[in-house]
Simulated scan of single mutants.
Amino acid sequence: MAAASTASASQVNGSALPSQGDKYRGAVVEDLQLPPAFALPSDEAISRAIESAYERDFSYIPVLDRHRKPLGYLDVAALKEKWEAGQAAPDDRVIIHLTKFNRSSSHPYTIITPSTSLPELEEFLRHNVFAIVTDYSRKFVLGVATQQDLDNFVSRRG
């Protein structure tokens, strides 16, 4: 667990300020009310990927293998740059342009589920641009969470 989530209230000028973990008031990823995930199969054409990303206003799209296991993701802005520079053809498959997840003993896979605490998600997002939210057995991609989702959650709660 992140150190921020275990911090206690601090005293500044005699008044208690909430710790970093308290700003979420015990909330979990499910409380973010993320839209349902949109993911692409690895053999999808990048023309469809770009079109789908703009329709949904997504910056990152998870890419799945034929068993629906996450392989990596498409960075839509980077893919668009490649397209405009002539480095990507409309019929290219997304697997050619995906960023693979770095899974190794030095970079263990972090599971983010609907019950993951928001301080844990925040700590994960300090080192990653987004988080893929999966079910508990990692068989289904449920959503994608970003720092903006956390910021919006805090601002909605006041």
Rank of each mutant, 00 (worst) to 15 (best):
L17F: 13
E30H: 12
P62G: 05
P114D: 03
F38N: 06
A88T: 00
S15T: 06
N128A: 13
Q33G: 03
G14V: 04
I112V: 15
R103W: 12
K80N: 13
D57T: 12
F101W: 07
R25A: 11
D43G: 12
E30C: 04
F130V: 00
N152W: 06
I46L: 05
F101N: 11
A88E: 07
N152L: 13
P108A: 04
S42G: 06
R48I: 02
D135L: 07
A145P: 06
H127K: 14
K69A: 12
A49Q: 03
Q147W: 06
S104D: 06
H107Y: 09
A2M: 03
M1P: 07
Y54S: 09
A145H: 02
G26A: 06
Y136C: 05
I50G: 07
P62M: 00
S8C: 08
E51W: 11
R156K: 14
R103F: 13
I111F: 09
S59I: 00
S52G: 15
A88Y: 05
R103P: 07
P62D: 05
L125K: 03
K139D: 15
S59Y: 04
V129W: 11
A16P: 01
A4V: 02
K80Y: 14
T116M: 08
S106D: 11
R68P: 01
F58A: 07
V133Q: 05
T113I: 02
Y136T: 04
R25Q: 14
Y73R: 01
F130L: 05
Y54T: 02
T99F: 10
Y24M: 01
R138I: 10
A39Q: 03
V154E: 09
A131P: 03
V63P: 10
Q147H: 15
V144P: 09
S105E: 14
G26T: 02
P70S: 11
D92S: 11
L121E: 00
F124C: 07
F38W: 13
K139E: 14
R25W: 03
L40Y: 05
S19Y: 07
S47C: 10
A131S: 10
S105Q: 15
A131D: 01
V29I: 10
G14A: 10
T6H: 13
E51L: 06
E122A: 15
P62Y: 05
F124R: 05
V94L: 07
V94W: 03
A27T: 04
A37N: 10
P119R: 06
L98A: 09
D135M: 12
A39C: 08
L121N: 06
P36I: 00
L32D: 02
G72Y: 00
G158H: 09
S117K: 09
E51Y: 15
F38K: 14
V154K: 07
L17Q: 10
D135N: 12
L150N: 13
L64G: 04
W83P: 01
S106L: 14
E122Q: 10
R25K: 11
P41K: 12
Q87A: 14
I50V: 12
A7W: 11
S47I: 01
F101D: 02
H127E: 14
P41R: 11
P36R: 10
S104C: 02
R25I: 00
V28W: 07
F58P: 00
S155R: 13
S5Q: 15
Q147Y: 13
Q33S: 10
K139N: 13
E81P: 01
L32F: 08
L34V: 05
Y136I: 01
